[in-house]
Write a protein that binds this DNA or RNA. Sequence first.
DNA 1: CCTCAGAGTAACCATATGGTTACTCTGGAC
DNA 2: GTCCAGAGTAACCATATGGTTACTCTGAGG
Lengths: 227, 227
Amino acid sequence: MAKARPRKSRDAEVTRQAILAAATAEFARKGLGGARVDEIAARARANKRMIYHYFGSKEKLFTAVLEEAYGHIRSAELALPLTELEPEKALEELLRFTWTYYLAHPEFLSLVNSANLHKARHVSNSVRFKASGPPFIGMVKSILDRGVAKGVFRAGIDPVQLNITIAAIGYYYLTNRFTGEILFERDFMSKTALAERFGFNLVTILRLVEKRRENETDGVAISAGQG
Amino acid sequence: MAKARPRKSRDAEVTRQAILAAATAEFARKGLGGARVDEIAARARANKRMIYHYFGSKEKLFTAVLEEAYGHIRSAELALPLTELEPEKALEELLRFTWTYYLAHPEFLSLVNSANLHKARHVSNSVRFKASGPPFIGMVKSILDRGVAKGVFRAGIDPVQLNITIAAIGYYYLTNRFTGEILFERDFMSKTALAERFGFNLVTILRLVEKRRENETDGVAISAGQG
DNA sequence: CCTCAGAGTAACCATATGGTTACTCTGGAC
DNA sequence: GTCCAGAGTAACCATATGGTTACTCTGAGG
């Protein structure tokens, strides 16, 4: 029965992509330390030798996977047509984009965790990686500026902090849902649960940025002391 | 030169704890897949055999590490004297506790990530683990209830969602700081940066819960639709 | 139609790894 | 003082693992 698999037709790019896709899945599922090169080769229906041929080492393959994952979300972000929307609506859409992207690409969340477990060592020298930061921040800043100009957002909000918070409230819920479901005895992934969480997050962000009275930049005293 | 190390004195509990501490560090640093049993034994200055003697397997050791880590934060939480404080102040102290705990115990964050990478499989049957959920939630709920009674918090806030958000905004900033520092070209861990983040988070939470007008339960329209 | 860069393969290797075997030693109970 | 449960040790094992060697085959360019 075991008919010898026909030699794969020669196409460097196809093979490279297959390896990258297989590696993305494997690293996301098991982390860098738990991922197996043999398993990646098998998933990619490629020979293990090809991995070393195209990527050099397991760690460099990990770098390539991270670069691609960040590149992907960056492209999707940049394609968002937020400038056409009113600032409140633009912020909501940005939050929704983040949320739906995380839901559609759980492997991205896992890869970010893995990258940070290793102190981002695998991307610290990556030009491609570094390029995926600034665009998003510019977007948030522009929304904030427009909101302030329109008089609906308070001034002085740090776009980086806001950006981190937007990511955090979606990200944490999704990546830590397994322990969360046990501790809180609640289904985190039902349609209702997801809608509830999104609604909660939207309220969180809108309340955070909204301006409440004339000449008031921040209604809450900032007591930032850390001891 | 190599004087044989004197046989360690017999103390089961001391050895068990040393192994647990070493395993906590190793799992936190490298994840479950990247951690090495030999390395844990060496760090604990124990014989590898002892690990299997006390814990049975690498995975069961991982379970023990998670149980202990969650047990530790739970104890610390329960020791918080929040009932004596006004609700606004109690919420602030809860946020501060979470933040300072995360800062003092970075290994906890990493272990939570690892547990969830493996879909919480290692703790899903752990009674000890399950016990660490409810207390915290009860605490948040009680603070919210007191705040509503006092007329300073809006009604209808889900304590579980609030709890998740409190954790998220600190946790995400800290665990993903390595990629964050590259992407945002900013120091995340300087005294100033930490104080800024805490201040931002405090504003986020206080604005989220505060009541703004009489008879108003939620000033922001909840559009929770997910499409 | 020939050529050959380089795509693809299988078998192999040194070492690392989780786990075990077979043993010795110690300190508290009597 | 004697005993022995069980704490502690070293050497070992089968297998898995990242990486390499030595090779064949193919298809685009001339």
